[in-house]
Amino acid sequence: MKGRGSLSGWVGFAVDAGLGVGFAAALAFQAYRLADSWGGAYWQFGCVAGAVVCGLALVRRRGRLWAAIAGLAVAAVALVVARLAGLPSEPGPAMALGLSVLVGSAVRVLPAWRAGAVAAGGGAVVAGGLLAAFVFSTGSVVAVLNGAAWLAALVAGLGPRLLTARRRAMAERVRRNERLELARELHDVVAHHITSIVLQAQAGQLLARKQPHTAEGSLADIEAAGSDALAATRRVVGLLRDATDNGNDKTHSAEQLGELVKRFDGHGLVVRLSLPDGESGWPPEVARTLYRVVQESLTNISRHAPNARHVTVTVTVARDQDAVRVQVVDDAPPGVTPYPHRGGYGLIGMRERVEALGGTLSVGPRRGAGWSVLATLPISTAASVSGRR
């Protein structure tokens, strides 16, 4: 960071040195032309006023707003004095160059309303010069030059300003997407594994009262679930620490989906899984989202529908082989919803995952009893999404 700051300082110094040379050349050219065309000492006032504005342009970094205000004030006073005293038109070329640097610099970095005020002040000076040239029919070339310099300053200031705003918006959008992805991952990890630990602990309490000799096995199951939760949490923390890892290298196969179902099967809940024949060969995004939909559905059933006894997880492939459908249904009694409308982010995260692949999600009660979650994931769209990533 120190080297970068030094480099920036040298660049700024080189720019100011170049501007100083340009200002000196403009002042010398202005003095020469005025002495040649007007004669006498008519060049002195304009060159002194121009030198003051150019000097303010060179020290603009110490206070861009006040430097711009002072430069515009000098230009406005010079315009009035030159007209009343019958001197050459102001602002002259050197002053116009200095004003363009002050206005462009202010428009580029100052807050919006201050930048607008400085730009408007520059426009007012240009308008005053044009009005004087029109009324007195003198100095029209100088007035046009001032207008061109002012427009160039606006372009030079607004261009980088808009580019910076665009980059900032893009960076914010990327950070927002990363926060949403990490929020979904944390929710999936914490809700799923903590629910598993709670279920194991509840089962362990029952076994401890009825079959004390089997309590050791329940404690081992709780320990295993806790270890899984710790490993999953470490993986998510690793995503936060490693910016080069987007977390999408992990795929979920049918075997892993079967292991997920086994963790919920038992302890009062019977879970059945139905998968299509043959290898899936689905894009990683599809397999991962399918896994998360099933995981979130089973977790919510365990947490919010304790009276449910049977759950069926069905995965099918559309006839055209271009979409995968997963449906999770339970037999919870009427009036019990495993997807509370308030205080939870599971359904929101599930819908975001599905819709990010161009899919659809339908969640609602079934006729008679139970709830259904149906997600449709297009394979071709997901493949293109994976390719872009």
Rank of each mutant, 00 (worst) to 15 (best):
R64G: 01
W38V: 13
H193Y: 13
R272L: 09
R168D: 14
H267P: 03
N307R: 15
R167K: 10
S386K: 10
L219S: 09
G204C: 02
S380H: 08
T138G: 07
A287Y: 04
A231I: 07
T376V: 12
A383L: 08
G121F: 02
L239K: 09
R33I: 12
S372W: 08
Q205Y: 13
V174H: 10
N246I: 11
P338G: 09
V385S: 00
L239Y: 10
V189Q: 09
G129Q: 10
V21E: 10
V354W: 00
P334V: 08
C47S: 12
G157Y: 02
A287W: 05
E90L: 11
L145C: 07
A382I: 00
P212K: 04
S362D: 14
R263M: 06
Q44W: 13
A220L: 15
E352I: 04
L163R: 13
Q200D: 15
R168C: 03
A375F: 01
R351K: 14
R389I: 01
G217K: 07
G123E: 01
E178L: 15
P334Q: 08
W150Y: 09
T164A: 14
V329H: 14
G123R: 04
G281V: 04
G92I: 03
G18T: 13
V189T: 15
R114K: 08
A57F: 03
T314R: 14
E172L: 15
S196T: 11
T314Y: 02
Y42G: 03
A127D: 01
A94Q: 03
Y42F: 15
T360K: 05
R367L: 15
R388A: 10
V74S: 05
L374W: 12
P306R: 14
Q211D: 14
V317Q: 07
S362M: 07
V59D: 05
D16H: 09
G55F: 06
A169C: 06
A49W: 05
W282N: 01
L230C: 06
R179I: 12
G281L: 05
L56Y: 00
D36M: 09
P334M: 09
V373I: 12
I197A: 14
A117V: 07
G50T: 02
S8V: 13
G116L: 15
M95V: 04
A318T: 12
A70Q: 06
V101Y: 04
S137G: 13
F134R: 12
R309I: 01
D265R: 07
R108D: 11
T251F: 05
G238W: 10
K210E: 15
W66T: 09
R209A: 13
G39F: 03
A94C: 06
V294Y: 01
G9K: 11
A35L: 09
H193N: 14
A232I: 04
Q211M: 11
Q256G: 12
L72C: 09
